[in-house]
């Protein structure tokens, strides 16, 4: 569809006249997100290699473990779900984490551009004939981002608890990785646009709420890096999980600093 086909507009036949590599960024996003989703799916349904007994390492993909087949030490909240293949072992948290990322204002931009091509890049035509944005089902549910944020904050607490629990066994590279992941997750979660709104963005008069204003300023500073943090946490999540999987499968042993 070009503007040449629309009455009144300048009749330019080229779909886009951009000469730079505008397709590069969406391609990177497509490959990056695609690879991560594939890895995460495989791992979630592997139902194993998530727990290192010796050092109490639990991968965030299985935390907290809530199905019947879970290792008891990894199940902080009990084992109440059936151990069917289709049920992820962290069935209580993963849907919310998925929802948090799916409705995240950054990821929305990323996948609308890279996967949905709406639009693939600025001044490059939309890949669709009709467009209603986020006004109706199902995309109107993007608006639940705030509640996904609340859930994600709770899950970040659980991840922190996991890291602290593992700390009791001493200190190894695994601990460091867990902590780095937790810090990155917190930074990503707190830099969320909804968090910024709740922190103070919704106020009309900052001057009447100096504490919330400071919190808002802090979140705003983080928020500028929301995109970077989104990618960093994808990296740390995958890395943490892969490291623990490798330890649990006995491919190599943890590099210990103390004990």
């Amino acid at each position: 569809m070009t503007t040449a086909t629309r009455p009144g507009r300048a009749a330019i036949t080229a779909r886009t006249l951009r000469t730079d590599r505008w397709w590069f960024a969406p391609l990177v996003t497509f490959v990056g997100l695609g690879a991560w989703v594939t890895y995460a799916t495989v791992r979630v349904f592997m139902h194993g290699n998530y727990w290192v007994e010796q050092y109490h390492y639990l991968t965030p993909f299985y935390s907290p473990c809530v199905t019947e087949r879970c290792v008891e030490a990894a199940a902080h909240l009990g084992r109440f779900l059936p151990g069917w293949w289709i049920v992820p072992d962290a069935a209580l948290t993963l849907p919310f984490l998925l929802l948090f990322r799916l409705t995240c204002y950054y990821y929305r931009k990323a996948y609308y551009r890279a996967f949905w091509l709406s639009p693939p890049a600025c001044a490059v035509p939309d890949g669709h004939k009709r467009y209603t944005g986020e006004t109706r089902f199902p995309l109107v549910f993007q608006n639940v981002h705030r509640y996904a944020f609340y859930a994600a904050a709770v899950i970040s607490v659980i991840n922190t608890y996991d890291a602290a629990l593992a700390q009791a066994t001493g200190l190894g590279l695994g601990n460091v990785i867990l902590w780095v992941n937790v810090v990155a997750l917190w930074a990503y979660t707190l830099s969320c646009h909804s968090c910024r709104h709740i922190a103070g963005g919704r106020l009309k008069h900052f001057s009447k709420h100096p504490v919330r204003y400071r919190f808002w300023t802090f979140v705003s500073k983080l928020n500028v890096r929301h995109m970077q943090l989104a990618w960093v946490t994808l990296g740390t999540l995958a890395l943490t999980d892969a490291y623990i999987m490798a330890l649990a499968a006995g491919w190599f042993s943890d590099l210990r600093i103390i004990n």
Binding site: K109, G133, E134
Partner: peptide, 11 residues
């Protein structure tokens, strides 16, 4: 104003 139509692709 159609705020909901925006899909925040940031162009």
């Amino acid at each position: 104003m159609g705020l909901g139509m925006c899909n925040i692709t940031k162009c």
